[in-house]
């Protein structure tokens, strides 16, 4: 019963809110507009934008040691999460049956375990750093904590339901996924999409100046 509600109406409602919310956020951003740059560019802005969208995935030269901890944990979390999200067998089944109509090969079990460990360890470390480091304390908002905890809860309930033997556990996982999806567009989790814009804008400006940013 509960599972049917969560996987039925609630799931559809969350998908709608998720997608509409993201559209609204992009509209909010893009509607503010950017004035065209009238200065004569030194090199092409578009190339700069594309380069920065990719290149900010790793760190700049001459910058790192003070932030090694954060960088390592950040990579752990995001790589782990990515594998879990798209290569865990139950997720692929869900995507095939409920979303796309086709699936792909799941990661082998040990890859799955390793990804889960990386993701959990990374997320916990990042959040702990958030509450322990003076800089992180200064700049963290309620949203940062909410996002980290919601993500944790989703992953945690997913882990609890791993045996796939109890509908109750599955429902719990789906419920938390729905909550996360509803929260997502209104939070800093939007960075997962808007990073293309922010990197792109900066890359374009710097590209026009002839600086590889």
């Amino acid at each position: 019963m509960f599972l049917e509600f969560v996987e039925g109406p609630l799931w559809y409602a969350s998908v709608v809110i998720f997608l509409v919310g993201i559209a609204i956020r992009f509209y909010e951003i893009l509607a503010r507009g950017v004035k065209p740059d009238l200065a004569v560019p030194r090199t092409d802005g578009t190339a700069g934008a594309l380069r920065t969208i990719v290149s900010r995935s790793w760190t700049a030269k001459g910058f790192s040691s003070g932030a090694v901890f954060h960088l390592v944990a950040g990579y752990m979390f995001h790589i782990g999460l990515f594998v879990l999200l798209f290569f865990a067998a139950p997720h692929i089944v869900f995507i095939e049956e409920r979303i796309l109509g086709f699936g792909w090969t799941a990661a082998p079990h040990w890859v799955f375990i390793a990804a889960a460990n990386l993701a959990f360890a990374g997320l916990i470390l990042l959040w702990l750093r958030r509450v322990m480091h003076p800089v992180m304390r200064k700049i963290s908002t309620f949203d940062d904590h909410a996002a980290a905890w919601l993500t944790f809860i989703v992953m945690f309930t997913g882990c609890m339901a791993l045996l796939e033997g109890h509908d109750g556990l599955r429902a719990l996982h789906m419920l938390s996924v729905c909550v996360l999806m509803i929260y997502f567009p209104f939070s800093r989790l939007m960075h997962a999409f808007t990073f293309v814009l922010s990197r792109g804008y900066t890359g374009a400006v710097m590209g026009r100046k002839g600086v590889q940013a």
């Binding site: 033997g165 109890h166 109750g168």
Partner: peptide, 21 residues
């Protein structure tokens, strides 16, 4: 209890390997 035990087992087994690190 069956549900709790199943969940606990999975959590225990999944988080366990992080502990050595």
């Amino acid at each position: 209890f069956a549900i709790t035990a199943s969940a606990s087992k999975e959590v225990h087994n999944l988080f366990g390997p992080i502990f050595p690190f």
